[in-house]
């Protein structure tokens, strides 16, 4: 069943805005409504075509009127922020994440026209720690997660989504858990982090990181809105980079700091409005997180086009990061050592 009327939340953000544009380009869909408190970026507006922007707050019951009056049959909730790129006000973010989702789900529950719900979540719900399994599957439960961080919001949002699925069994509910996004045009906590000339890490730790190209994330959300059936799916690129390896590939200089100095450094970076360094993110940078994407490939039927390494290299080339140390010097020296003696 192709959706007729689609409502996308969070069109003021990268994923929501571009997703609305993609859906608007699909001639089988009659109407695309984009909702957010802030208008989409200007370059997104140009590509959005016939998609309509409704300036509304999903925390407000008004959203129920939008859904019923437009006879929305598919809702894509893309506004959940589990990994804020920069420093944010915690209370405002939490309210947007949790209360916004509650209101949206309440409105969906009342609207008989809604047939499909897609919720963008994050693999941050698995947490990260020394006692976690190396590769998370969709059935793993949260562990090692801080009680007040944005990752906790995602866990709570998923609980509300499960509650909604119980109360409206006729609605197909798809929950996609994205790994950290990267790409030349997206602004995430990691794109900001690797753009720092000197990248702070925690001494004695090296994380495994799995990345998802922003284009793949868009394609997955689009396909989730169009396909039949629901379910929970991990979404991430193939393969793994070590944090230290990624820093070297980006040509940055790594600055390992003793664990005791990390809170101070995090406060400095937050204060300078550079990068968000919340405890969950630090734990991620210490232990890393890898998810199993077998279900995405076999059940959902999607294979990411970029591997973790390709996505990261695309980000490095696209953001024109220049290496601080040039490895070609060593290559020249190596060939000289091998060639001179005959």
């Amino acid at each position: 069943m192709t959706p007729k009327v689609v409502l996308v939340t969070g069109v003021g953000g990268y994923l929501g805005g571009h997703l609305a544009a993609r859906l608007a380009a699909n001639p089988d869909i009659d109407r695309v409504l984009g909702v957010d408190t802030v208008p989409p970026y200007r370059d997104v507006v140009r590509t959005m075509g016939r998609a309509e922007f409704v300036r509304a707050d999903i925390r407000n019951p008004l959203i129920a009127k939008v859904i019923t009056s437009a006879n929305v049959d598919t809702v894509v909730h893309a506004s959940l922020t589990a990994l804020p790129p920069g420093p944010t006000r915690r209370t405002a973010l939490k309210e947007m994440n949790v209360i916004g989702t509650m209101q949206l789900l309440a409105a969906c529950q009342r609207a008989p026209s809604v047939r499909k719900l897609v919720v963008k979540s994050n693999t941050a719900v698995y947490g990260a720690g020394p006692r976690s399994p190396a590769v998370f599957t969709e059935d793993d439960t949260p562990k090692d997660i801080s009680s007040g961080g944005p990752a906790k919001d995602a866990v709570e949002v998923e609980q509300y989504v499960r509650g909604f699925a119980r109360r409206r069994p006729d609605v197909e509910v798809t929950l996609v858990r994205l790994t950290n996004l990267i790409g030349p045009r997206v602004d995430t906590v990691l794109t900001r982090y690797f753009a720092l000339p000197v990248v702070p890490t925690v001494l004695g730790y090296d994380a495994r990181i799995q990345l998802l190209h922003s284009e793949d994330a868009l394609a997955v959300l689009e396909q989730a809105a169009l396909r039949e059936g629901g379910g929970v799916f991990n979404v991430g690129g193939d393969g793994v980079l070590m944090l230290s390896q990624a820093i070297r590939r980006a040509g940055r200089v790594q600055l390992p700091m003793p664990a005791a100095a990390v809170p101070t450094a995090g406060r400095l970076l937050r204060g300078a409005r550079l990068v968000d360094f919340n405890p969950d993110h630090v734990r991620y940078l210490n232990y890393g997180r890898v998810v199993d994407t077998t279900r995405l490939r076999t059940v959902f039927g999607f294979t990411p086009r970029w591997t973790t390494r390709q996505a990261f290299d695309d980000y490095v080339h696209g953001s024109a990061l220049r290496p601080v140390l040039d490895p070609s010097l060593l290559a020249a020296l190596e060939s000289r050592v091998l060639r001179t003696r005959v």
Binding site: A134, V135, D206, R208, Q210, G239, V240, L241, M242, S244, Q245, A246, I247, R248, R249, G288, V290, L325, P327, L330, A331, L333, E334, V337
Partner: peptide
């Protein structure tokens, strides 16, 4: 040894999902 240093410096090596 130089080749190893170059690979390490450029981050040009494979790591599996367990690290």
């Amino acid at each position: 040894a130089l080749a190893f240093a170059r690979r390490r410096l450029a981050g040009d090596y494979q790591v599996d999902e367990f690290g």
